[in-house]
């Protein structure tokens, strides 16, 4: 699998990462070699193998439906890069 500039740009956009022209070239190479490494997997036949998502094959535990939290609004809001009137602010979202 070889990657070209447009692939890298598409991935970078999906990942919301701005990349420079130099980085673009570096990614073409490094991602290419990582994918070559990863492609070793394709030699293995796994047709009858159930994917393993969790190493212990456990099931989800359930939480009792109770309100257990206290309001930490001020502490959380203090972490916000930009906020006003208790809201997180971001550059205008255009729908």
């Amino acid at each position: 699998m070889t990657l070209v500039d447009t692939d890298i740009k598409k991935i970078a956009h999906l990942a919301r990462l701005q990349i420079s022209q130099n980085e673009l070239i570096d990614y073409v190479n490094s991602l290419g070699s990582i994918l070559a490494l990863v492609d070793h997997m394709q030699q293995v036949n796994t047709d009858d193998v159930e994917p393993l998502a969790n190493p212990l094959d456990q099931h989800q535990r359930l939480r009792v439906d109770q309100v257990t939290t206290v309001n930490q609004h001020d502490e959380f809001m203090a972490l916000a890069p930009v906020s006003d009137a208790g809201l997180y602010l971001v550059p205008k979202v255009i729908e």
């Binding site: 359930l62 109770q66 930490q72 609004h73 959380f76």
Partner: peptide
């Protein structure tokens, strides 16, 4: 474990998990 509300003061019923804080983990409501 944050309360489900409507019309509350903004961001007062959002906890670690709801805010996507680092290290926060979800547990399913029965």
């Amino acid at each position: 474990g944050a309360a489900v509300t409507f019309g509350a003061i903004p961001n007062t019923h959002a906890t670690l998990v709801d805010l996507g804080m680092p290290g926060a983990l979800p547990v399913l409501n029965e």
